[in-house]
Design a binder for these strands. Structure first.
Lengths: 337, 337
DNA sequence: GTATTTGCTTTAATCGTTTAAAGTATTACA
DNA sequence: TGTAATACTTTAAACGATTAAAGCAAATAC
């Protein structure tokens, strides 16, 4: 079946393509198209099942109505969640989303953003990978509208939607203190990512402000590529020594999963032997024998905000926004009271 | 910073745009461009950091090098897995993937495919939702190349990549028989989806061939929107009566999760109280106290095959393929021996 | 009776590429 | 010397839409 073009409708009705374009783009009034012709055109479009060629449209208008999204790793629950939220909001505003995953690799990240820009996306929503600072600067110079999500670089002045990671961690520790814990440990990733460093800072400050005991073995940074091995050691050291920790806060959902698995293997029971708190939730928690207390990122709101800001930028409204969201605290049964 | 066009390179070097186009598209030899000019053009392209406008390119060549993918529900592990596989293979062949989730809604499914077709994707990979048969027929008539994955309609002759669901279920039951189970139950969804009905058929035939006891309460179909409630009843009935089932096979990963949760709530221990087998794996299994034996779909191979077939179709190689894959059996510790 | 306005429609350039087809030197050969 | 072949290069139409600008009747103004 041959594709129906604007020209075909014009021919069918017996007018020029200009009229057809005006009518189908809702400019019938403005361009003073006669009611008669307008009606005929609309009918013909339906009858012939006209589907405009978006590529031609885009070339002419220089707008693709497409948003490029680069997430850090599609396997993260955060990624699927934020993707969903962004897609929903984008659809509401009549944008399509093309996305890719950088798999936490700076080079892949650059490549991906370039591919998306070449495909003439109107703007980008990015969860930048580690070491992608340079690429962000380039992007900024190129004038492509973009918004960072979740992660940002304190040295670059960009639009972003982020979590108040410092506060969230501080609050989590405070909750543990309030529920009677005194020897609180924290397991994070070995990273240069600012948002994770902020979690470190939150932990440290909270310990200090609450005058809690600190212990180098209670604050661990695991190598992202060796979580399993490093976790084995880290959890053992938390518990085995003469001075065991009484609560552990995991900095990411993946760490929580790895940690809980390890506790299972060691026969450690939660919360009897140690209390557990997690940053973010994982599907895997569903089948753990006890619900895990955690800080929940408001993904829907964050995604929505990111699209809002981006669309404003695309429409040349000189938005400049750096939004911080708070986590919700979801109480489980993984902390002894 | 202004975008660099083909024209700019031409001007910079002092030749026509045609030459530039030939060189940058690897037709320098074929079109007998002088080595001198070819070199100059290549240098200029790099120097000016030329990025071709894909939209213009697509309009002219009528190829977007884009594949549209519609999955049934992005929250399924199957969906993220197959998406990943498809993206990887697509990238290898220099295609971009645009995707959307129909959320198991036929109307949304139609809408999405239309959007993708309007965006001039070169072809589609589809996991059709229930009741989308009509849309598939329309698509077929329109001549758009497409491949179905996971699900297909026995009454429509399309290209597809699927699982041999009948055999997989038959084999799963046979395994349970071999390991000494005699009262095998099966929990599936209430559905008209062919691939799930095939699982029913596999279960029934296996029971018959092995001369096993059948029992209406051992074969349940839960309403997709009410899995939790229905599961509560179904699992209770499996176990409470005078004649309890000794093994249960779940037809999907989501059913497995819901079922295992319910077993947890009832205090049923796996595999002591009942053996469990699952179709497909879920991340959530990670934190269950025992590894779940399951049939694993070869997502990578399926995704790869789907892209292969689609690309052939796009290149007008009159492929006609209906591929079936076998599941791998992953032994866990959820079945009593 | 001519000029102007109104109401509506068409013409044609444009977006940034690709690519037949035509153009133009240079060399080869009779 | 004239013609043909060779080796390049340029011209310009196309892809399918949008949209200023121009065109053209009929109605109104003076």
């Amino acid at each position: 079946m041959k594709k129906v073009l604007l020209k075909d409708i014009a021919q069918h009705v017996g007018v020029s393509t200009a009229l057809v374009s005006y009518v189908l783009n809702g400019q019938a009034e403005e361009k003073q198209v006669s009611k008669e012709n307008a009606e005929k055109i609309r009918l013909a479009a339906i009858e012939l099942n006209y589907q405009p060629n978006q590529v031609a449209k885009s070339l002419r208008t220089q707008k693709t109505h497409t948003i490029g999204l680069v997430v850090a790793d599609i396997n993260y629950r955060f990624s699927t969640g934020i993707t969903r939220a962004i897609e929903a909001e984008a659809k509401r505003r009549n944008f399509t989303v093309i996305y890719g995953s950088s798999d936490e690799d700076a080079q892949k990240f650059s490549q991906l953003t370039n591919v998306l820009v070449n495909r003439q996306v109107d703007g980008l929503i990015l969860v930048p990978s580690e070491d992608s600072e340079e690429q962000i600067v380039l992007l900024q110079q190129s004038g492509t509208p973009f918004v960072l999500v979740d992660r940002y670089f304190p040295n670059i002045d960009t639009n972003y939607v982020a979590l108040d990671n410092y506060q969230a961690t501080y609050d989590a520790v405070s909750y543990l203190v309030k529920t009677g814990h005194k020897k609180i440990s924290f397991i994070n990733l070995e990273t240069s990512l600012f948002h994770l460093l902020e979690r470190d800072r939150g932990y440290r400050d909270a310990l200090k402000d609450h005058h809690l005991e600190t212990n180098p073995e209670w604050m661990r940074h695991l190598r992202p590529q060796h979580i399993k091995e490093d976790m084995e050691l880290a959890t053992r050291q938390l518990l085995e020594r003469g001075n065991p920790s009484d609560a552990v806060l995991f900095a990411t959902d993946r760490l929580s999963i790895a940690g809980l698995k390890q506790f299972n293997d060691y026969g450690i029971r939660i919360p009897k032997d140690i209390s557990v708190m997690s940053f973010d939730e994982a599907d895997a928690f569903d089948l753990f024998y006890c619900p895990i207390s955690h800080s929940r990122q408001p993904l829907e709101k964050m995604g929505e905000a990111a699209v809002d800001i981006l669309v404003d930028l695309i429409n040349k409204e000189n938005t400049h926004k750096q939004l911080y969201f708070r986590t919700d605290f979801i109480a489980g049964k993984s902390c002894r009271e």
